[in-house]
Simulated assay, not measured.
Amino acid sequence: MDPKISLVTIGVKDLDESIQFYRDGLDLPMRDREPDSDVAFFTLKGAWLSVYPREKLAEDATVPDDGTGFSGMTLAHNVTSEDEVDAVLAEAKAAGGRIVKPAQDTFWGGYSGYFADPDDHLWEVACPDLTDE
Rank of each mutant, 00 (worst) to 15 (best):
E34K: 15
E34P: 06
P35W: 02
D36R: 04
D36A: 06
D36F: 06
D36Y: 09
D36C: 02
D36M: 07
S37K: 02
S37E: 11
S37A: 14
D38A: 00
D38L: 05
V39N: 03
V39M: 10
V39W: 09
A40R: 09
F41H: 15
F41S: 11
F41Q: 03
F42N: 02
F42P: 02
T43Y: 05
T43L: 13
T43K: 15
L44S: 09
L44P: 12
L44I: 05
L44M: 15
K45S: 14
G46K: 14
A47C: 15
A47F: 14
A47H: 13
A47E: 13
W48F: 14
W48S: 15
W48I: 12
L49D: 12
L49G: 13
L49H: 11
S50G: 13
S50C: 11
S50D: 08
S50T: 10
S50N: 14
V51A: 11
V51R: 06
Y52V: 08
Y52M: 10
Y52A: 02
P53W: 05
P53M: 01
R54C: 09
R54T: 08
R54Y: 08
R54L: 12
E55Y: 10
E55G: 09
K56Y: 03
K56P: 03
L57T: 04
L57A: 11
L57S: 02
L57D: 04
L57W: 13
A58D: 07
A58N: 12
A58L: 03
A58F: 06
A58Q: 03
A58W: 06
E59R: 10
E59V: 01
E59D: 12
E59A: 15
D60S: 05
D60H: 08
D60T: 12
D60N: 10
D60G: 01
D60Y: 04
A61L: 08
A61E: 05
T62W: 09
T62H: 12
T62A: 12
T62Q: 14
T62I: 02
P64N: 04
P64D: 05
D65V: 02
D65P: 11
D65H: 14
D66M: 13
G67Q: 07
G67P: 07
G67A: 13
T68K: 13
T68N: 06
G69A: 01
G69P: 01
G69I: 04
F70A: 08
S71H: 02
S71D: 03
S71E: 01
G72F: 00
G72S: 03
G72R: 02
M73T: 11
M73A: 12
T74F: 04
T74Q: 05
L75E: 03
L75I: 12
L75H: 08
L75N: 09
A76S: 15
A76G: 14
A76R: 13
H77W: 05
N78C: 07
N78P: 04
N78R: 08
N78L: 06
N78M: 07
T80A: 13
T80N: 13
T80S: 10
T80M: 09
S81N: 10
S81T: 15
E82Y: 00
E82I: 00
D83Y: 00
D83K: 09
E84G: 06
E84I: 03
E84N: 08
E84K: 06
